[in-house]
């Protein structure tokens, strides 16, 4: 039995996320002693043969009218059909918005165990067991599949990237999209020039300590020099200083970046729940008693309005010299 991986694209373009999924799948296939096969859906601008650099030798493309607009049931049904045709019993997805939406239907059609919020490579092959985050990163749990097939959705940035040489053979295939009524997409509105959460490798986040939405300029400048996405705490999104889509925490988005810089955020337990999986946490707060310092790797006690511009300058200088 092989491993199938969904190589997602956005308006025809692949992202780091896509290749992390490819690598996750080829490492899982290695563990299971089999091969990993990629699937793309929709028209492509980028070259899918790049999957070869992440251990995938074969990529199948689904194209045409059925696949221009996302629909959870339709994409789930099509992926299941490809998995069956390829004899795949393990299907890998990176936890993007669309992947999370289609994974449940894929699991139903495949009669597979659905393992989501997975934070590392599979722990064992038999029984097929993964480590998943639970209670909004306040805990972890080993979860095993009791069905013979399984769909794995991992959290972006869980394993990172390692490139090697190679090119995959890309060919077209076809699959039906099932008989459920479809949604019809009217308008797609993506913010240009911003790094979306949760895939951002670095995130700069602001809280109530920034005093008002007009003060986000310095935070955005820091994010720009760091090549980071921007985020905020719940009160900031509740007060409409920043859009909901930037709210990270227990009831917002859970993220796992390499670097999380928290500015003027006290570190309530609900906020920590969404960000504590970050590899390195920097906390800037004028209150030395702020609970966030206990969860931080690096802490700076000081006024954000002085510290943040200095940090931005220091990074600029560093980048100029390196």
């Amino acid at each position: 039995m092989s491993v199938l991986v969904y190589l997602e694209n956005w308006e025809g373009k692949f992202k780091k996320n896509t290749w992390e999924a490819a690598l996750y799948a080829s490492k899982t296939a290695e563990m299971l002693g089999t091969e990993a096969i990629g699937v793309t859906i929709g028209d492509l601008e980028d070259d899918a043969s790049k999957a070869g650099q992440f251990g995938i030798n074969k990529v199948l493309s689904l194209k045409g009218d059925d696949f221009r607009q996302f629909d959870a049931n339709a994409f789930g049904a099509a992926l299941n059909e490809v998995a069956e045709a390829q004899g795949a019993d393990t299907i890998i997805l990176s936890g993007t918005f669309n992947a999370k939406a289609l994974a449940p239907s894929l699991a139903i059609y495949a009669e597979a165990a659905l393992l989501t919020n997975v934070t590392a490579l599979p722990l064992s092959a038999d029984p097929f067991t993964v480590k998943r985050g639970v209670f909004s990163s306040k805990g972890f749990n080993d979860l095993s599949a009791s069905a013979s097939k399984r769909v794995v959705v991992f959290v972006p940035n869980s394993i990172g990237l390692e490139e090697s040489e190679g090119g995959a053979e890309v060919s077209e295939t076809s699959a039906s999209t099932g008989d459920a009524p479809r949604v019809s997409v009217q308008e797609v509105d993506r913010v240009k020039g911003k790094i979306p959460l949760p895939e951002a490798e670095r995130v700069v986040s602001g809280g109530r300590g920034l005093k008002g939405p007009e003060n986000w300029g310095m935070l955005e400048e820091l994010a720009e020099v760091l090549d980071a996405g921007t985020a905020c705490s719940k009160p900031v999104s509740d007060m409409d200083w920043r859009p909901h889509s930037e709210h990270v925490g227990q009831t917002g988005i859970a993220i796992k970046p390499n670097l999380y810089v928290a500015i003027g955020i006290s570190g309530a337990i609900q906020h920590l729940a969404g960000v504590s999986a970050s590899n390195t946490i920097v906390v800037i707060n004028k209150d030395e008693e702020a609970p966030f310092f206990k969860a931080a790797d690096f802490g700076i006690v000081g006024d954000a309005f002085e510290v943040v511009p200095k940090l931005t300058e220091a990074i600029k200088k560093f980048k100029a010299n390196n």
Binding site: W10, F70, T96, F97, N98, P181, R182, V183, S184, V185, Q186, E187, V188, D189, R190, V191, K194, I195, P196, E199, S245
Partner: peptide, 12 residues
């Protein structure tokens, strides 16, 4: 609905 890096308007 929310999508990666933005929003989508749709009907069903």
């Amino acid at each position: 609905r929310e999508i990666d890096g933005g929003k989508e308007k749709l009907s069903a």
